[in-house]
């Protein structure tokens, strides 16, 4: 059975519409107007035990709402959600013992206390045995290299250090499912890498299921094979990250470097030029003809170096969102096809 199963999930928020300015505010005191916002609109997917799945989508796409429904914080308007056989909105303690929620923009540690005191509170709330608590805390502080900071008040830690502590707090009770909402937001590269490394190791060691949202493509690329792309509350891609490139990016990026810095004019004038930075020209070529065109150019010009690459994933996804109107109807679900 799948660890997470979501079928036809919908969530509608009723949002109070406030008039503009003071007059509008006063008017809306007496006559409330509501707007219905469809945050999640018929999303279905399954996640197997031990999988690491990335959630991609622009702000307000419905990623966080889905995570919140999965962790039982908010109730779905429609649809079925099951995680480890539990219905999250029932908020069973047995279920709440089995997952952890980590949010990059909200902190769960006591601000004025050393992190270790918050950990000890978690120990009691999750009924973690003494020996196990010491062992797990030791392992994690080692892994994230924050042993010396355990006894420093959280408010004195840097953002990266604090996030590591947050991560430890989330993993202390050895959850089998992790919901991570923007876990590396605002962190420097070193801290990001260290958190990614910890997550990867933890996933390998414990076979923990991870569902992750992030704006950093790097997070997704280094952690998740499979991604769910969501936009306007609708799932527009469910499959391997590599497949997004295959299916959605119909082009390759060809970079040519010329001998002696002399670039043929007719080449820089082409319609498919992306960038000209002497002695280098970057072209965008249809995937089907890219190889042929590359060898033709190689034969014809005095080229010192040539590379054919996939376009950056960020770009493909951005493009996907721009084209979403046509796309949303025909959900690309490579998983089902393969």
């Amino acid at each position: 059975m799948a660890a997470i199963s979501v079928r036809q999930l919908k969530k509608v928020y009723k949002v109070h519409q406030k008039g503009q300015g003071l007059t509008g505010s006063i008017k809306s005191l007496f006559r409330r107007q509501y707007k219905h916002v469809q945050a999640v609109d018929g999303v279905s997917f399954e996640v197997e035990e031990g999988e690491m799945v990335g959630f991609l989508g622009p702000n307000g796409a419905g990623k966080t709402t889905t995570l919140k429904i999965l962790s039982g914080l908010i109730y779905p308007t429609e649809g079925e959600v099951q995680v480890l056989g539990f219905i999250p909105s029932r908020r069973d303690n047995a279920y709440r013992r089995q997952f952890a929620l980590l949010m990059g923009q909200k902190n769960q540690l006591w601000w004025d206390l050393p992190a270790v005191e918050s950990f000890r509170l978690h120990k009691e709330i999750y009924s973690i045995e003494d020996a196990k608590f010491e062992r797990v805390q030791g392992e994690l502080t080692e892994l994230l290299d924050v042993r010396d900071l355990l006894h420093q008040p959280v408010r004195e830690l840097s953002l990266g250090e604090r996030m590591k502590m947050e991560l430890i707090a989330a993993l202390l009770h050895s959850p089998s499912i992790l919901f991570l909402d923007e876990p590396t937001i605002g962190l420097d590269v070193v801290a990001q890498t260290s958190i990614r490394k910890c997550l990867r190791e933890y996933n390998e060691r414990r076979k923990v299921t991870i569902l992750l949202t992030s704006h950093y493509m790097q997070d997704i690329e280094s952690l998740c094979e499979r991604v769910l792309v969501i936009n306007d509350g609708k799932l527009i891609h469910d499959g391997l990250l590599a497949d997004i490139l295959d299916r959605l990016a119909g082009y390759k990026v060809l970079t040519l470097r010329f001998q002696n810095g002399r670039m043929p004019e007719e080449l820089t004038q082409r319609a498919d030029v992306v960038e000209v930075r002497p002695p280098q020209v970057t072209l965008r070529l249809p995937k089907s003809t890219a190889a042929k065109e590359a060898s033709r150019l190689l034969a014809r010009y005095d080229i010192s170096d040539l590379s054919v690459e996939d376009p950056p994933i960020e770009e493909v996804i951005a493009q996907m969102f721009r084209a979403r109107d046509g796309m949303a109807e025909s959900v690309v679900r490579t998983r089902d096809l393969s």
């Binding site: 962790s71 039982g72 914080l73 908020r91 303690n93 709440r96 013992r97 952890a100 909200k106 709330i125």
Partner: peptide, 18 residues
Amino acid sequence: RTGHLDFVLVRPANTQFL
């Protein structure tokens, strides 16, 4: 208001008590 109630709600203990 800040949404920090999230972290109380995910704990496996009586929410009102916490």
